[in-house]
Every structure is written in C-alpha cells, then in structure tokens.
C-alpha cells in the first residue's frame, strides 16, 4: 500500500529522502512504545486479578492455597516484566517509562500485598527488584555465537523509587479493604495489625510529603482517608470488646459466650 502513495512523491528530493529515514526511526520507536503499552496492560490486568484473588484470604480457612495461587499468577506477571526488560535492552528506560509505569505500579501493589499477607511486612524496593532478574539461556536471537555475553545472559529490570512509592500508596487502599473485610469476617487481630502497619506507611509518606513527585502528593488524601477508616474499625472493635467481660458475667448465657470466646472468633 505504501508503494502507491510513494509514487506521487518526488523521490529524488533530499527532503523526502530524509523523511523516509525519519519515518523508519519514528515507526520503530512507536512500535516499541505500542508493544510496551500492551505488555503493561497485561501486567496491570493480571496484577489486579491477583489482588482480587488475595482478598479472598479473609473469607476462606486455608489461605496458604490462595497465597500459592497468587504466587503462580505473579510469576506470570514477572515473565511479562521480563518481556519489558527485553524490549528495553540497550534503550534509555526513561524514554519509554510512560508506556509501562501503570503496569509496574500495579505489580508493586500486588506483590507488596502478597508480601504483607505472608510476612506482615513491607516489601522493600530491593526485594522487588531482586525478583526481577531474568536469565536468557541461549542468546541465539542476535548474532551467531556468544557475542553479547558469555554463558547465560542476565537481564534485570529496575523498578524506580517513584513507581515503588505509587504502588505502595495504592496498596494502602487494598489494606483498608482487607481490614473492613476482616472485621466483617469476625477476625479480631488483623485489623489492629493492619492499623499499625498502615500508620507506619502513612507516617512514611507524610515524612516524604510534597518533596516526592506530584502523583504521590495527590494520593496522600486517599491514603489519609483509608487510615481513618482503619482506625475507626479498630476503635469499634475495641469499644465492642470492652463489653465482653461485664456482660458475660451479667448474662444468663455465660457459658455459651465463653464457648464462643475460646473459639477465638465470633459467629
């Protein structure tokens, strides 16, 4: 198709000649950008699904299975991030950053959610990056021999501190949801744990304040609201809890209530 159009253009012209070169360069760049946007979308969708899956830990008894399932899903996401790293080989990462930053942020959100549920700790930027090292066994795609690297080639992907921060900021929303769900499922401990953890993250963010990028500042308000909801939930649990002993004694149905208490959970 391109051929026909070209006929109408004076191909002797040096201007046209130059623009044909530009065309190649721009198309290459745009194509790469487009491919990265697509991979990033897949990363986003799969990460979101992992988060949805992880929320089920508050409603099922054996949450180890869910964590393992989520890990498998996240492995898939990491493979996708490997494709991003592959595309970025030899490029300036920042040139295409806008193409994949939404996906990476969502991955940070998912992986830090997973990490919190398993270890009750905030995953660090290093821990995230450590799992984004990819081995390419044979380098036959480019060149004949082992020209690029001897032996298996190592490819890494570095999440930027800003993407890490933005992912963690979104994590707090999920933690809030988890907290409310926990209360809804009669879990008395998780909300307090979550409240302490969320408060730490909140204090961290207010320490960074508006020195971070604009997008981070924008999320501070939501973060504060989430913290408020979690603190309210803990408050409600504490206030409710305050009644047990007294009413236990005062109540005719002491034994049943006691039975409930040893069950370490309600309803």
């Amino acid at each position: 198709a391109g051929q026909k159009a070209d006929d109408c253009v004076n191909s002797d012209s040096p201007v046209i000649g130059a623009f044909k070169v530009f065309q190649r360069e721009l198309d290459t760049k745009h194509d790469k950008h487009e491919r990265l946007v697509k991979i990033s979308r897949d990363v986003t969708i799969e990460s979101k699904r992992t988060i949805f899956l992880l929320h089920r830990v508050t409603s099922v008894p054996d949450f180890e299975n869910i964590l393992n399932d989520a890990d498998v899903k996240l492995d898939g996401v990491r493979q996708k991030i490997g494709q991003i790293a592959e595309e970025l080989r030899g490029e300036d990462l920042h040139q295409f950053h806008r193409a994949f930053t939404p996906g990476i942020q969502e991955y940070v959100e998912a992986v830090s959610f997973h990490h919190f549920i398993r270890h009750r700790k905030l995953i660090s930027l290093e821990e995230i990056n450590a799992r984004l090292v990819f081995m390419k066994e044979d380098q036959t795609t480019k060149g004949g021999g082992e020209d690029v690297c001897a032996g298996p080639c190592v490819l890494t992907f570095q999440v930027t501190p800003t993407d890490y921060l933005l992912g963690v900021a979104d994590l707090t929303g999920e933690l809030m949801r988890m907290c409310i769900s926990s209360v809804g499922n009669g879990d008395m401990d998780t909300p307090f744990e979550l409240s302490g953890f969320l408060r730490e993250i909140h204090d961290g963010f207010s320490y960074i304040g508006n020195t971070g990028p604009y997008e981070v500042s924008k999320k501070l308000h939501t973060l504060r609201q989430s913290l408020g909801k979690v603190e309210d939930a803990c408050y409600a649990l504490r206030v409710r809890g305050s009644e047990i002993p007294k009413h236990m004694l005062a109540d005719v149905f002491t034994s049943r209530a006691a039975h409930l208490e040893t069950d370490d959970g309600i309803a």
């Binding site: 209360v183 809804g184 409710r240 149905f253 209530a257 409930l260």
Partner: peptide, 16 residues
Amino acid sequence: VKKIEEVVYDLSIRGL
C-alpha cells in the same frame, strides 16, 4: 458486611 457482623457479635456475646 461489617455492620451486620457487628450486630451478630452483639447478639452473640449476649447469647441472644
């Protein structure tokens, strides 16, 4: 869900 759980809790601790 949370609100209803609280109601159930209130009934439970009173054996209601």
